[in-house]
Protein backbone atom coordinates (compact mmCIF):
# COMPACT_ATOMS: atom_id res chain seq x y z
CA UNK A 1 0.00 0.00 0.00
CA UNK A 2 1.95 2.97 -1.25
CA UNK A 3 -0.44 5.82 -0.71
CA UNK A 4 -2.06 4.51 2.48
CA UNK A 5 -1.83 7.02 5.30
CA UNK A 6 -2.58 5.23 8.58
CA UNK A 7 -4.66 6.87 11.27
CA UNK A 8 -2.65 6.67 14.45
CA UNK A 9 -3.72 7.70 17.93
CA UNK A 10 -1.39 8.12 20.89
CA UNK A 11 -2.45 7.86 24.52
CA UNK A 12 0.26 9.63 26.44
CA UNK A 13 0.78 10.58 30.06
CA UNK A 14 0.77 14.23 30.97
CA UNK A 15 4.05 14.25 32.88
CA UNK A 16 6.49 12.44 30.64
CA UNK A 17 5.51 11.58 27.12
CA UNK A 18 3.35 14.64 26.55
CA UNK A 19 6.24 16.82 27.64
CA UNK A 20 8.55 14.62 25.56
CA UNK A 21 6.41 15.15 22.48
CA UNK A 22 6.45 18.85 23.21
CA UNK A 23 10.24 18.75 23.30
CA UNK A 24 10.28 17.02 19.93
CA UNK A 25 8.35 19.94 18.51
CA UNK A 26 10.38 22.68 20.17
CA UNK A 27 13.59 20.98 19.04
CA UNK A 28 12.27 21.18 15.45
CA UNK A 29 12.49 17.43 14.95
CA UNK A 30 10.27 16.07 12.21
CA UNK A 31 7.88 13.17 12.66
CA UNK A 32 4.85 11.97 10.68
CA UNK A 33 1.67 13.97 11.10
CA UNK A 34 -0.50 10.82 11.20
CA UNK A 35 -0.49 10.77 14.96
CA UNK A 36 -3.27 12.30 17.06
CA UNK A 37 -2.08 12.80 20.60
CA UNK A 38 -4.48 12.41 23.52
CA UNK A 39 -3.26 13.53 26.91
CA UNK A 40 -3.99 11.46 30.02
CA UNK A 41 -3.10 12.26 33.62
CA UNK A 42 -1.17 9.03 33.93
CA UNK A 43 -0.76 5.70 32.13
CA UNK A 44 -2.56 4.19 35.10
CA UNK A 45 -5.62 6.13 33.96
CA UNK A 46 -5.69 4.50 30.53
CA UNK A 47 -8.49 2.00 30.91
CA UNK A 48 -8.26 -0.89 28.46
CA UNK A 49 -11.74 0.03 27.26
CA UNK A 50 -10.32 3.34 26.02
CA UNK A 51 -8.00 1.35 23.80
CA UNK A 52 -11.05 -0.49 22.43
CA UNK A 53 -12.82 2.85 21.92
CA UNK A 54 -9.88 4.12 19.88
CA UNK A 55 -10.18 1.18 17.52
CA UNK A 56 -13.97 1.63 17.41
CA UNK A 57 -13.50 5.15 16.14
CA UNK A 58 -11.43 3.89 13.29
CA UNK A 59 -7.74 4.15 14.10
CA UNK A 60 -5.38 1.71 12.43
CA UNK A 61 -2.90 1.75 15.26
CA UNK A 62 -2.32 3.09 18.72
CA UNK A 63 0.68 4.25 20.73
CA UNK A 64 0.43 3.94 24.50
CA UNK A 65 3.19 5.76 26.24
CA UNK A 66 4.12 7.06 29.67
CA UNK A 67 6.90 7.57 32.17
CA UNK A 68 9.65 5.00 32.57
CA UNK A 69 9.20 2.65 35.54
CA UNK A 70 10.12 4.36 38.81
CA UNK A 71 9.60 7.81 37.21
CA UNK A 72 5.83 8.01 37.62
CA UNK A 73 4.50 11.31 38.90
CA UNK A 74 2.06 9.34 41.03
CA UNK A 75 4.71 6.82 42.12
CA UNK A 76 3.07 3.64 40.89
CA UNK A 77 0.64 4.41 38.05
CA UNK A 78 2.86 3.01 35.34
CA UNK A 79 3.55 -0.18 37.30
CA UNK A 80 -0.16 -0.89 37.44
CA UNK A 81 -0.46 -0.01 33.77
CA UNK A 82 2.38 -2.37 32.95
CA UNK A 83 0.61 -5.32 34.54
CA UNK A 84 -2.63 -4.33 32.87
CA UNK A 85 -1.04 -4.26 29.42
CA UNK A 86 0.49 -7.70 29.89
CA UNK A 87 -2.95 -9.14 30.63
CA UNK A 88 -4.79 -7.07 28.04
CA UNK A 89 -2.34 -7.99 25.30
CA UNK A 90 -2.90 -11.65 26.17
CA UNK A 91 -6.71 -11.30 25.90
CA UNK A 92 -6.38 -9.67 22.51
CA UNK A 93 -3.80 -12.23 21.41
CA UNK A 94 -6.06 -15.14 22.34
CA UNK A 95 -8.96 -13.50 20.54
CA UNK A 96 -6.90 -12.98 17.41
CA UNK A 97 -6.87 -9.21 17.56
CA UNK A 98 -3.88 -7.72 15.75
CA UNK A 99 -1.73 -6.60 18.69
CA UNK A 100 1.07 -5.53 16.34
CA UNK A 101 -0.97 -2.36 15.94
CA UNK A 102 -0.64 -1.35 19.58
CA UNK A 103 2.75 0.13 20.45
CA UNK A 104 3.63 0.27 24.13
CA UNK A 105 6.56 2.51 24.96
CA UNK A 106 8.09 4.53 27.77
CA UNK A 107 9.13 8.03 26.67
CA UNK A 108 10.42 10.49 29.26
CA UNK A 109 10.18 14.28 29.11
CA UNK A 110 13.79 14.48 27.95
CA UNK A 111 13.46 11.97 25.14
CA UNK A 112 12.24 14.16 22.30
CA UNK A 113 14.25 12.19 19.79
CA UNK A 114 12.85 8.89 21.03
CA UNK A 115 9.29 10.15 20.56
CA UNK A 116 10.04 11.11 16.96
CA UNK A 117 11.48 7.64 16.39
CA UNK A 118 8.54 5.88 18.08
CA UNK A 119 6.03 7.66 15.85
CA UNK A 120 8.09 7.20 12.69
CA UNK A 121 8.53 3.50 13.37
CA UNK A 122 4.86 3.05 14.20
CA UNK A 123 3.71 4.76 11.02
CA UNK A 124 6.16 2.73 8.97
CA UNK A 125 4.93 -0.50 10.56
CA UNK A 126 1.29 0.45 10.02
CA UNK A 127 1.97 1.29 6.38
CA UNK A 128 3.29 -2.23 6.03
CA UNK A 129 0.25 -3.74 7.78
CA UNK A 130 -2.31 -1.68 5.89
CA UNK A 131 -5.68 -0.52 7.19
CA UNK A 132 -7.24 -2.66 9.93
CA UNK A 133 -10.11 -3.85 7.81
CA UNK A 134 -10.62 -7.08 9.79
CA UNK A 135 -11.79 -5.12 12.80
CA UNK A 136 -13.67 -2.51 10.81
CA UNK A 137 -15.70 -5.33 9.29
CA UNK A 138 -17.43 -6.09 12.59
CA UNK A 139 -18.46 -2.49 13.19
CA UNK A 140 -21.99 -1.55 12.14
CA UNK A 141 -21.91 0.02 8.72
CA UNK A 142 -22.60 3.72 8.67
CA UNK A 143 -24.01 5.86 5.91
CA UNK A 144 -21.19 7.08 3.74
CA UNK A 145 -21.12 10.17 1.55
CA UNK A 146 -21.71 10.63 -1.31
CA UNK A 147 -25.00 8.79 -1.02
CA UNK A 148 -25.17 7.25 -4.47
CA UNK A 149 -26.33 3.77 -5.40
CA UNK A 150 -22.84 2.37 -5.23
CA UNK A 151 -22.09 3.24 -1.62
CA UNK A 152 -25.53 2.85 -0.13
CA UNK A 153 -26.96 -0.60 0.46
CA UNK A 154 -29.40 -1.68 -2.15
CA UNK A 155 -32.29 -1.89 0.30
CA UNK A 156 -31.68 1.59 1.56
CA UNK A 157 -33.72 4.43 0.18
CA UNK A 158 -32.37 7.86 0.94
CA UNK A 159 -34.38 10.98 1.19
CA UNK A 160 -33.39 14.33 2.66
CA UNK A 161 -35.72 15.27 5.49
CA UNK A 162 -34.20 18.44 6.86
CA UNK A 163 -32.61 20.92 4.52
Amino acid sequence: MEDFEPKLAAFVCNWCTYAGADLTGTSRMKYPSNVRILRFPCTGRIDFMLVMKAFDSGVDGLIVSGCHPNDCHYTSGNFHAQRRWVVFKEVLDIMGFDTRRIFFTWVSAAEGAKWAKVVTDAVEELKKLGPYSEFKKILLKKLQFPLDNKTADREIKTEPVIS
Binding site: H80, Q82, R83, R84, W85, K89, F104
Partner: peptide
Protein backbone atom coordinates in the same frame (compact mmCIF):
# COMPACT_ATOMS: atom_id res chain seq x y z
CA UNK B 1 -0.31 -15.66 31.56
CA UNK B 2 -0.58 -14.11 34.99
CA UNK B 3 1.11 -16.98 36.76
CA UNK B 4 3.82 -17.04 34.10
CA UNK B 5 4.48 -13.31 33.93
CA UNK B 6 4.06 -12.21 37.52
CA UNK B 7 4.56 -15.13 39.80
CA UNK B 8 4.71 -18.87 39.57
CA UNK B 9 3.13 -19.13 43.00
CA UNK B 10 -0.60 -19.76 42.67
CA UNK B 11 -1.57 -18.17 45.97
CA UNK B 12 -0.31 -14.71 44.99
CA UNK B 13 -2.42 -14.62 41.82
CA UNK B 14 -5.25 -13.04 43.79
CA UNK B 15 -3.21 -9.83 43.76
CA UNK B 16 -2.70 -9.79 39.99
CA UNK B 17 -3.97 -6.41 38.84
CA UNK B 18 -3.93 -4.40 42.04
CA UNK B 19 -0.43 -5.23 43.03
CA UNK B 20 3.00 -4.97 41.44
CA UNK B 21 6.65 -5.80 41.98
CA UNK B 22 9.01 -2.84 41.40
CA UNK B 23 11.53 -5.01 39.59
CA UNK B 24 9.09 -6.29 36.97
CA UNK B 25 10.27 -6.05 33.40
CA UNK B 26 8.00 -6.42 30.41
CA UNK B 27 9.70 -7.17 27.13
CA UNK B 28 7.14 -5.70 24.72
CA UNK B 29 7.17 -2.21 26.28
CA UNK B 30 10.11 -0.56 24.56
Amino acid sequence: KISEAFSSDDSSIKYALNFFQPDEKVDFIK
